[in-house]
Design a protein around this nucleic acid. Structure first.
Lengths: 110, 110
DNA sequence: TTGACATGTGACCAAATGGTCACCTATCGT
DNA sequence: ACGATAGGTGACCATTTGGTCACATGTCAA
């Protein structure tokens, strides 16, 4: 089994950029796209996309594979699942709605 | 009902900093803390903490309320729940394990 | 084999970010 | 009233980040 113990911080930082989230969405829609294919999805030169893909790869959110002169990119949802399980779920539990009530009350308090 | 249509991007960006996640954790552990109380939780001056709290407030992750000369800070989990429902869950679904298999196979391919 | 195509590298730049500080206002307790 | 306490503002600085470009390598197809 490959090790998924990459830094949680890297994943959060990788997800913080809207372009990178768009790239993930593009791979979600169609996995295994090349750099030039992804380039067309986003208002940016090839070089910008390359940098973003590098960040995504280092965070483990994207894995790639070379086929001839092309580089195919694949979405890896595991890090997202990890931060979901270890972090997001803690705050997104059902009882959140109770806190929502509290917040509403507080904001209505003069 | 208060409007929760804040920008998703702001939430992701707010969550991208480890100090800010620590502050959220601190509020998760004990809600309604003052600035000086939170200051002690983090290796940073008061001013740095103020900036981080401002980012968290603007993202809607923290709401505050003044009590005399103090400012009380409260965690608002709703934005996290929103990005969970609208974004994270899409990638963190059960079938993610199937993709994990695929990724492993790809990485093992020479 | 040669030209077009897909990707990679390093330098470079502007803007955003994270953090500190001097100074200021407001409120509390006595 | 007065010192101490809690918080706020704006300037300032170093570093990181997002993006581009010139140039270079590897690969395909005729």
């Amino acid at each position: 089994m490959v090790t998924y113990r990459r830094d949680v911080d890297e994943v959060f930082k990788a997800l913080a950029d809207p372009t990178r989230r768009e790239l993930l969405d593009a791979l979600f829609a169609q996995d295994g796209q090349t750099l030039t294919a992804l380039e067309e999805r986003v208002p940016m030169t090839r070089f910008g996309v390359m940098k973003h893909l590098k960040v995504l790869e280092e965070a483990g959110l994207v894995v790639s594979r070379k086929r001839g002169r092309e580089k195919l990119h694949f979405l890896n949802p595991v890090p997202i699942r990890l931060i979901h399980d270890r972090w997001v779920s803690k705050y997104a539990e059902p009882w959140a709605s109770a806190l929502t009530e509290l917040k509403t009350q507080l904001e209505d308090t003069p």
